[in-house]
């Protein structure tokens, strides 16, 4: 499959700028894990998923569940850029009365398929959605994005077991493998590796890719669609804080807002104007 790499890279830069602007305006939020997930989300919404911002609830649509709900600014950015709601609304993130809650709220935000934020729960709901597609013979696919730290939640493995038990080949889950969580490196907090072998042992098809390379993301998503009888895991090696020099690979930027000076530098590094 051929992809328009320039278009996707330009869009991903916009999404990253949106992320920085949102979190700076909110004064709190999670930039590190939003930036690491930005390319995967950009690919799904701008090159892959059958969704229609004019008809967000269409039954036979592809669905996306942000299981690592704290990356909400990345999801809100792609939804706004896709046309689900005005880009200007992004600056209301985390403010009283805004639909853009700190973590995704499906009741109020068009295009959000599941309310998430409590780790482990999104993938479980995604399994239910994929199961519904099977029951209905629907052509829709279900995508989910998990964090690597999130894999420490037992519920993830209950869901992983169920997805393979039911043979949910319409479910593709990404792990945003940036290696860092709030308290530090995954292996210092609670070892999650080997992630690939764990999912294989649970009956999943597993691919490992560079989560910032659109060609690799595209190839993995295409291959996943050909897998029959199994859910698919795309283990995406990523860089926490990707695209902003002073945030990259810094656990300290998991859940902290940039100052005005830092936000300006970040936006400029991403090719935007402050």
């Amino acid at each position: 499959m051929t992809i328009d790499r320039n278009y996707l890279e330009t869009m991903a830069a916009k999404v990253r700028i949106d992320i920085i602007r949102q979190i700076h305006a909110a004064g709190s939020g999670h930039p590190g894990g939003s930036l690491s997930a930005a390319d995967i989300l950009t690919y799904l919404y701008f090159a892959e998923m059958k969704v229609d911002p004019a008809d967000p609830d269409r039954k036979e649509r592809d669905r996306f569940v942000l299981s690592k709900g704290h990356a909400a600014p990345a999801l809100y950015a792609v939804l706004a850029e896709k046309g689900y709601f005005p880009v200007e609304e992004l600056l209301s993130l985390r403010k009283l009365g805004s639909m853009l809650q700190g973590h995704p709220d499906r009741k109020h935000i068009p295009g959000v398929d599941m309310s998430t934020g409590s780790l482990g729960q999104g993938i479980s709901a995604a399994v239910g959605m994929a199961l519904a597609n099977h029951i209905d013979g629907s052509t829709g696919r279900v995508y989910a994005l998990l964090g690597d730290g999130e894999l420490q939640e037992g519920l993830v493995w209950e869901a992983a077991m169920a997805a393979s038990h039911y043979g949910l080949d319409d479910l593709t889950a990404f792990v945003d493998w940036n290696g860092l969580q709030i308290d530090g490196k995954n292996e210092d907090v609670m070892t999650v590796t080997p992630i690939d072998d764990k999912f294989r042992a649970f009956g999943w098809d597993v691919q490992i890719i560079d989560g910032h390379d659109f060609d690799q993301i595209a190839a993995a998503v295409e291959k996943a669609k050909t897998v029959k009888g199994k859910p698919q895991l795309i283990l995406a090696k990523t860089v926490k804080g990707k695209g902003v020099s002073f945030m990259e690979n810094e656990a300290g930027w998991h859940g902290k807002a940039p100052s005005e000076e830092q936000a300006k530098q970040a936006v400029e590094e991403l090719g935007g104007e402050w």
Binding site: A125, A126, V127, G128, M161, A162
Partner: peptide, 12 residues
Amino acid sequence: ANMMGMAAGLAF
């Protein structure tokens, strides 16, 4: 726990 999560996904 997963039963309740799946139930939510099916409902939506």
